[in-house]
Design a protein around this nucleic acid. Sequence first.
DNA 1: TGCTGCACCAAAACCGGTTTAGTGGTGTTT
DNA 2: AAACACCACTAAACCGGTTTTGGTGCAGCA
Lengths: 362, 362
Amino acid sequence: MRTGRPTIKDVADAAGVSKGAVSFAFNGRPGVSAATRVRILASAGELGYRPSATGRALSNSRSQAFGLVLARKPEMLRSDPFFPSFIAGVESVIGPAGQSLMLRFVGSAAIEKATYIELSRTNSVDGVFVTDLRMRDRRPGLLTSLGLPAITLNRPRGRSDLPAICQEAGRAIRDAVSHLIDLGHRRIAHVGGPGSYLHSADRRQQWSATLRAAGLPDGPFVESDFSAAGGAEATRAMLDLTERPSAILFGNDLMAVAGMSVAHSRGLRIPADLSVVGFDDAELSGHMHPPLSTIRTDAFGCGRAAATVLLAELSEPRVQQADVHLPPAEFIARGSTGPPGVAAGKGRRSVSGIRQIAPSTP
Amino acid sequence: MRTGRPTIKDVADAAGVSKGAVSFAFNGRPGVSAATRVRILASAGELGYRPSATGRALSNSRSQAFGLVLARKPEMLRSDPFFPSFIAGVESVIGPAGQSLMLRFVGSAAIEKATYIELSRTNSVDGVFVTDLRMRDRRPGLLTSLGLPAITLNRPRGRSDLPAICQEAGRAIRDAVSHLIDLGHRRIAHVGGPGSYLHSADRRQQWSATLRAAGLPDGPFVESDFSAAGGAEATRAMLDLTERPSAILFGNDLMAVAGMSVAHSRGLRIPADLSVVGFDDAELSGHMHPPLSTIRTDAFGCGRAAATVLLAELSEPRVQQADVHLPPAEFIARGSTGPPGVAAGKGRRSVSGIRQIAPSTP
DNA sequence: TGCTGCACCAAAACCGGTTTAGTGGTGTTT
DNA sequence: AAACACCACTAAACCGGTTTTGGTGCAGCA
């Protein structure tokens, strides 16, 4: 057995043709007769030849990879349900297309910028996904100036020449808050994600606007970090308020579930004493007790769409790709939201396990 | 602005040297004087030159990527906490080393084999991670015959020439079961993952062996699928048994949490009426109410170790890499396990539904 | 018969690097 | 002074493909 895999030259020699002919035959281009084409493919089959991805990449200066640069800690992948789903969606499209995904975790914004430049200069990726948009995000400008194909998740605030994958969530948030208001809640809190993220700011704004539209004052707000620990802490802060909210809208399901546990451990019943709404519709959420009301987004579909657009941009470099609008996010009312009980806002202490159960008004 | 990024030739021209000299200068090899070296690096800096990853890859026939082929549905990424953590661990090592991870989801075992062959033939990856080992797994043999560097997660049953990353979990499982036994449980069930996976079979075996060592009969066993829905269903089946278990050991935290909710919704208290143990120590688990007792594994560290070994194999191809043994998994006793209460097995009216639960003999 | 046009394919250039072989010049040795 | 080793560097080959160029043989046509 000779060392290394068969190359195009081996096939050419075996079939008695030139390298170019083999290339034409393999790519279904004109330039070889049908007879020689089958002969070439036959001897390629015998040798078990498959064209080298690297060689091919060099020729057409494509790296066959897309980049995803995340300014977060690697551990985040395990807690934020968005990214695994997003990545899965991306892979489901690009894998069959022969592309791969290059993940890169970076610490600071400075390194982030350097990383994009690096990826572009070294020709390591054919395009990038831009997620976690910030308020005044410089990445769209940077990427267009680098000439690197890119797509953003949601449309940035400022000017951006990049196509965007949009999933409208404002409506779902208004639905969720309205749902709480209709149930009789008057003091509706919000535990959001880091305010530097555009989506966090948007969600907070929608929450606030809906309350005001209903003639209600803003409820208490706490900025947290999307983690379970952060959600638990924020919830404790909320429940310690003298005028405790009767409902909390959380920035993601993870914080919401942690918040529910905090409430439980204080002897509060959900939803009678506290209504809870999450965001994401994680797999677990429907299986909580009570099942978590939440806002369902389509991270998987988002990944699919983003990858599809980026692939299209590769095949037609000149054409400006249009924004893709996914079906808007949806509010899912489940068991964790309900009318506030008579005891709501009163506060009550309890040892876990020996709790008093008060009657609730339906 | 000229089209395309600067190449090594541009730098060579600018510095007035040959391509080879630039290459030497960039790779810190002897062959150029210190003076010319700085001159070359200076003009490279001016031009903003970075060597092309593709060109470099072609020369040394490296693709700069590792492969991870998963015979699961892409959606799984969002539910199984292992893989996001594992991937994060891998990325934390290979990113700085200039490698990337190529994910590939495949449907059947046949496609799986074809995918490995494809990856190898097209030179798309420099090595692969083999996860989800099965009972009689043919992949180690396939990969060694392909000459593709690889590493397995845990040591396969059969012969394998591949190095393995091992994290012993048997001890932790025995600890968990013993803990339950010490608390007074006599009927300890197990809801495991798909039996075709080696780790599922191992865990089941450990559970069973520990019970027998204590002179107890095997508790009821249900094979499930690691999903929340599957865990909930399995739990319902367990609670429907005429001799209901007083404790359940789940194959992962996701199923355990879903199981806890099922128990709650039937009016059972945890741990008084049912003790629950998970597996993984997901982020949420410590924030449940009660906090979930579980077995902590180090998926992140596993990814780090696997990537490190694979990188080492690249730099020293001849050397047979040794197995890496991570610190063993650890049983974490939290609030979801406790002595079976007086009411355990007695049955009680549930809130949702009107289900009668038959008494079981302890 | 001679010329054109086409189909088919070989040869070579190219992508952007790495690596090897070879060259000219300096310094050391005898 | 001749022989030799060594250094710094260039030129060229190479990795494995794609693409361009160019040449051959044959059919069609005047």
